[in-house]
Amino acid sequence: MNIFRLAGDLSHLAAIIILLLKIWKTRSCAGISGKSQILFALVFTTRYLDLLTSFISLYNTFMKVVYIGCAYATVYLIYMKFKATYDGNHDTFRVEFLVVPVGGLAFLVNHDFSPLEILWTFSIYLESVAILPQLFLISKTGEAETITTHYLFCLGVYRALYLFNWIWRFYFEGFFDMIAIVAGVVQTILYCDFFYLYVTKVLKGKKLSLPA
């Protein structure tokens, strides 16, 4: 554990909590991609199956359970409790175009050809692109609520901090995981355009809206 890893995990946690609170407080999931949230629930489910097979630390177990629980709670709020506010007409990204290639890649490029390891690899690849339906929704509507942009910022910062964590671990522990690193770089790059808009607009008190 180093400071980048811890800060990354906390940023990830903050993102998840911000989204849950936004939906709960406003009683609305307008502007949120249910598809991205289903993908994240799938990511956590396939990655944290090792909760059942190996114990790493209390911290590790606690965070995994919280992430999974929050992911399903978010999906529940979007598709059940506040279904009437769900922006289905704009949430039209074809997720099969992500899940199928990512599934195929997980079979082909993995550390070990075993069910748990393939599912872990699948989750890493899928996480790197799971935000695309959300970004697609924002590009379609041309705007995002400020609280939604805070969510996205925390979520993007999380993986960026993990990149520093991996640099740290490579130098000080000789540890590296090429699959996680490559996917993490891809994931972070996908947020760059958004980071730019966040800094130039949201941080200056303006609403995030895209030119038509």
């Binding site: 995990d9 790493i56 630390s57 590790n60 872990w120 540890f175």
Partner: peptide, 10 residues
């Protein structure tokens, strides 16, 4: 190296 022996990250 012991590349990704156990996945200790989240």
């Amino acid at each position: 190296a012991d590349e990704a022996a156990a996945h200790d990250e989240l």
